[in-house]
Design a protein around this nucleic acid. Structure first.
Lengths: 351, 351
DNA sequence: TCTAATTGTGCAAACGTTTGCGCAATGCGG
DNA sequence: CCGCATTGCGCAAACGTTTGCACAATTAGA
């Protein structure tokens, strides 16, 4: 009976439930529910409440939240969909989300897509089956079937890091436009003229905004980039960054600087430059975006743009809370400030 | 009716359930359940099964797994408890776990403890309330109240990265002993004699095993470390590593090498050395443990020991599956091999 | 052709909560 | 002292599945 193994379907041996607490307290189990569930309707006298609480504590009662969910249709769990948790941009976001949502009693379900849209759709459907109260989507494309699916399923959605074209979904993003503008101005101010860029896919708001940040500043200064100074990566990884930089370098004289769409790509670019016999930053400048951990320790320390990821997570969580409420506010996009971080990977050609 | 907002307690508008599929198919809803739930008891004719499946697809039926859990007492969800997802050792483990468990229909709930035992206990209790089918514990201490709590709650537990003193819990760990021995032999072979160590708390199996790996090899060679060459960190972070190294360096002549309990600590140590005007590796050698991403790119590239984290995650998941089954095997500890990775942060004093 | 075994489906209970409703007891104003 | 509002608690339904059991229909064996 008290075997430590339990069969697949048998209830956990001796798990104490509401009814047990009720009989032990000499009240009806609905009364116990009302005592233990703060904010239930019926009012209970202090004496009874205290007694029931004592008995519940005594018996070590742990509410069965699955049963509660069955009744309330709310699981107090939310999904977080990312491409790959190993990408260092995601963990701080998760931390920020948990910081806000854990105290409220929410649990976070993470789903890795592995960059596969079919997997991602599956993840959403499974989260829907589990009746998550909401989903944080960190993979958002400008036109996104996942977003549509969530709308069909009527699941509150908050987009993080990126946003949709239509902007009909609440989102918390980094100010990529401002960040990239500031960075590009610095690159120009330091005398770089022959500039190359490694860009993200343009079906992502980040990819597009960062590119616009660059091109805006360039055209302000009467410059445009020739075709052969622009390359794209499919995913933002070290390997793809390295490959992209190699193709940039294969084509005649190297540029004076490469502006990379993010840090991992920049690190790949540094590798490629080094492999091509170029010294960074003496022969070529490199910049990233994100300021992920350790990029201040690499050789050379990476010039980049810091996005306050934990703050993005926290804000997203607050937006989620607002949007799960019965009187949800209209969708809005919150931009979190970006901060330029100058390090040695980009030098001042004038000085 | 088709409002996109839904109240807290109202069922999602128009969510199709078993009964809907049943009436649309002209069969009883139990029949639908048997068709859709592979491996149910009653056998259904192919004709009916096919028809029901078609109708279900047509109606876009998504099973309500909360209701199923209510009946079966199994949620097909498992918890993963870590101190802080931002520590780069954890994400690959999560990926490995998901790789094995997602195809089986499991979802992963992550819980960050923030290094706080009270929080951790709370996380466990909340996961218990949610009826998780099992818990991966990555925070295991040699004597661990969390492990005891899980045993009391009768929740299958698999320890990852570390193990308990009693070893009565299944665990998947890295071969810290072998890894540290190999590293220490290399340090000695390269002529370092005045060695210092920065150790983890000794109430952790990793902390203790890595220290034993070092001291075993030292005593094999007739050496022992003086007190002032041994310091401890509370948590394995860059900051604590830096502080620990500072105290090491404050005390007379610097050692020839510092063996650090992990990479983050080693990076902190490198910082401290640099701040003290020492060149790594010329004036002092530094080694880490883990081989986290980017430590091959830092200055200087870090000599370390690689643990196959994803493999640890996968193996832990398989152990979990075995232990959730009705006929669970006896607990055992699986060791995953460690691999020495030599880089520039430690040089050969002989040549 | 008759009995026995097998197959396919319906019936209804159970899982542990939450909560609308009803009713007794109490308090209060007149 | 009566009637009415308020307070405190019990009753029972409902949430959407899974599954043991009953039983009708079909098949097989003799």
């Amino acid at each position: 009976m008290s075997s430590s193994k339990r069969s697949k379907t048998a209830p956990r041996a001796g798990r104490v439930k509401l009814a047990d607490v009720a009989t032990a307290s000499g009240v009806h189990y609905s009364t116990v529910s009302r005592v233990l569930r703060p904010g239930s309707k019926g009012r209970i006298s202090d004496a009874v409440a205290e007694h029931v609480r004592a008995v519940a504590r005594e018996l070590g009662y742990q509410p069965n939240s699955v049963a509660a969910s069955m009744r309330t249709n709310s699981t107090y769990s939310i999904g977080l969909i990312v491409h790959d948790m190993s990408d260092p941009v995601y963990p701080p976001i998760l931390t920020g989300i948990e910081e806000v949502l854990s105290p409220q009693g929410f649990a976070v379900l993470v789903g890795n897509t592995g960059y596969d849209l079919a997997v991602e759709m599956d993840v959403v459907n499974r989260m829907a089956s589990r009746l998550v109260d909401g989903i944080f989507l960190a993979t958002t494309r400008l036109e996104d079937p996942i977003v549509e699916r969530c709308q069909d399923l009527d699941i509150p959605l908050v987009s993080v890091l990126r946003q949709t074209q239509s902007r009909d979904t609440p989102a918390v993003i980094n100010d990529c436009l401002g960040g990239m503008q500031a960075l590009t101005r610095q690159v120009l101010a330091w005398g770089h003229r022959d500039i190359a860029v490694i860009l993200a896919p343009q079906n992502l708001s980040t990819g597009r905004e960062r590119w616009r940040g660059i091109s805006d500043v360039l055209s302000e200064n009467g410059m445009t980039l020739p075709e052969h100074r622009i390359v794209h990566v499919e995913h933002m990884s070290v390997d793809e960054g390295e490959r992209a930089a190699r193709t940039l370098l294969a084509d005649g004289a190297p540029p004076e600087a490469i502006i990379c769409v993010n840090d991992l790509v920049a690190i790949g670019a540094i590798r490629a430059c080094r492999a091509a016999g170029l010294n960074v930053p003496r022969d070529i400048g490199i910049s990233g975006y994100n300021d992920i951990p350790l990029v201040d320790m690499i050789d050379p320390p990476l010039t980049t743009v810091r996005m306050n990821l934990k703050e993005i997570g926290r804000t997203a969580a607050e937006l989620m809370l607002a949007h799960m409420a019965p009187d949800a506010p209209p969708s809005r996009t919150v931009r979190i400030d970006a901060e330029l971080v100058l390090r040695a990977s980009l030098r001042n050609l004038n000085g």
